[in-house]
Amino acid sequence: MIERSPFFDALTYAVMIIGLILVVIPFWVVIVAASQSLQEVSRVPISLLPSDQLWANLSEAWARADLGPKMLNSFIVAIGVTIGKITLAAMSAFAIVFFNFKARMICFWLIFITLMLPLEVRIVPTYAIAANALLPFQVILDTFGISWLVQAVSGIQVSLNWNLLNSYTGLILPLVATATGTFLYRQFFMTIPDELAEASKMDGASAMEFFRDVLIPLSRTNMLALATIMFVGSWNQYLWPLLITTDRANFGTVVMQLKALIPAQNGTPDWNVTMAGALIIMLPPLLVVAFMQRWFVRGLISRDK
């Protein structure tokens, strides 16, 4: 604050309070509706004060949408994507920044370009690849006549097949295959002074020791930021899990269950149960963001330019 201006200060608070109401209203409505009984939630206009049915609605939503196993699936996918992405991103950024090899720039661009096209844009063909993840290699073998050669020599017909539909691998891998993390790590590694690498070399540490004992501990803040972004992003995935899991009972995630909780056109309008379900489903990423805010904000910003 530079000068005293009581009027402008009052305006500032007014705007922030209006903003707070705008942002909080949906959360408030979800909580209030989730705590009301069917009669209360169907009243027009609705009361904006919480009632006492929260626990009953939560357990009803939990049972109706089978949220127990679905929660577990969501956690497995979100944690799998987070760990997978951090590991791969750190490794490939290390290779790109600290190694001198011929194809370095090509590799960087091959990975970087994937930032441009989100999964949603290429959803149809990605689905086809999930039905058989080894298809590209089969095609390569076929084109170069290797499968023919193998068959002629050994009599074995080469047919590579790895179906990812209805599997955790299929839910996780395509979400790992983007460059966000790699880019974040690259930006961070670029800020490491040369002297550090030189010193560690002089002390006789190998490349991997430098990576493990110096870079990884230094990048802890980045790791937390990336972990938050990845956890939230993968927990909230909708379109991809919807396509790749035909076996909803065993491999469905919680976010997919939201639609099943919406009251049917001519059914009971029990929005209180729907909102209770929504509350359960939106809570884990919200808690992660609320607790990790300090680190994650920094990571989000340094991700781009």
Partner: peptide, 21 residues
């Protein structure tokens, strides 16, 4: 800190909430 919250919400969850609103 509250202004950042919407970032954490899954689009379908917000969709269901807004559909009710």
């Amino acid at each position: 800190s509250v202004f950042i919250w919407p970032y954490a919400i899954a689009a379908p969850a917000a969709g269901v909430a807004f559909r009710f609103i």
